[in-house]
Design a protein around this nucleic acid. Sequence first.
RNA 1: UCCUCGAUAGCUCAAUGGUAGAGCACCCGGCUGUUAACCGGGUGGUUGCUGGUUCGAGUCCAGCUCGAGGAGCCA
Length: 464
Amino acid sequence: MGEKVTVKELFRGAQTHLRKKVEVSGWVRTARDSKAFGFIEVNDGTFFKNLQVVVDKTLPNFKEAVGLPVGTAVRVEGELVESPGAGQAFELRGEKVEIVGTVAPGYPLQKKRHSFEYLRTVAHLRPRTNTFWAVFRLRSLAAQAIHSFFQERGFIYIHTPIITASDCEGAGALFQVSTIDPADPPRNEEGEVDYDKDFFGKRTYLTVSGQLEAEACCHAFRNVYTFGPTFRAENSNTPRHAAEFWMVEPEMAFAGLEEAMDLAEALIKYLVKYVWEQAPEEMEFFQRFIEKDLFIRLENLLHAEFARITYTEAVKLLQEAGVAFEYPVEWGKDLQTEHERYLTEKIFKKPVFVTGYPKDIKAFYMRLNDDNKTVAAMDLLVPGVGELIGGSQREERLPLLEKRLAELGMGKEDYWWYLELRQYGGVPHAGFGLGFERAVMYITGMKNIRDVIPFPRTVRSAEF
RNA sequence: UCCUCGAUAGCUCAAUGGUAGAGCACCCGGCUGUUAACCGGGUGGUUGCUGGUUCGAGUCCAGCUCGAGGAGCCA
């Protein structure tokens, strides 16, 4: 009876197990056989590579073992030996192959390349494929990296609410949360649905951002961050949008826009470095099969200083570029996707912070600049993915904030506690939101957000 | 939501308006260490749905459903 080991343990330290009996349990990835011997490749989910098991006629169930269909769950015992064949340094000489779980006919995954579109239709099975192994393992590490980065810098992790009564930015469709029976709702005297009778006594929604709560907490802990699920009910049908996604939102007191950009740049670089060190095999896989210039792009990112330009400069650069854009570039209008891509992919060829957008195209809480026309906002644009981060210095001056709410027709009663933060020891503060999935896409080269979320929620799609 | 493209075997794809095919998977057989093994044979189809044009529709037309890409919204 050999020691129970994982495939990862074998690959990371084969020497300690060589010429010893071990037991491995996992799933058959492929099996091939010849007349008197055969090979079974087993993976147990702990490592990217498969363990090659060699069996020959001395195995009691030889014929059965070498004919096992892909996906069969097995437990294998045998001696770990140096492999005479090319392609692997060691292999397991199988002395016992026990079948733990059989595979029914019609198993949707085969040992060949499937399209991502097809794999989305079998989301419960696709984590077993090479690409999704790599993606989801990397996603796990990236999440860990987020926490390491902030914890190392003394940021406090705040669990902001998922159910909220405030529509954070006054824009964007929300998912309503209610226990009212839609077929027979309670009604008030005017005949409208009476949300006073709803669970929370008012209308509530799934959060679109934890920012407002993070702002409250940064006035207590100085530096905080949130990292959790976020929901948008937008009818967006693109490879970059999901109805449910994760967002990272740091918020710093006694800080301005420059500090927010410094933090964002450090965070992105830390993330890339961390996962590259922790998951070299996975990164190698992405480089080989997903995006062939991935390493060049990421090396560039690690060594480049992110460009920083103002919106006004960006408009000028684009107008002088001599390119016929589908939409004209004009000061006061938001930059179109084609403009953002041109800036980051053609002009700078690296990540670019664009700051100082016109106040009319940005959210109410962003701090007004001295020119009275622009706000201390910043977007981080990266090649391939587009907008990766959006942030700003927040308006800490109460009269200006109240004026802005009034201009936008937003009731200040709805934001009473947010406004009070400015009355009780309010300080300059700044923060940003990082789309976690977009970061994972950027690091892996994956082109569709549906393929970096295990069970993605998008318009008309919540099967799994 | 708008624009464009697509839907044929379990998967990936072929098929001038004229008998629906290949590779892989699966089943059977062969094979002296294989690497998505290889070689030979076999099974497998209401061509997304509904209707129309035609002697005849996978192919042409209309509507619908689903998917993908682009745009908008954004992270």
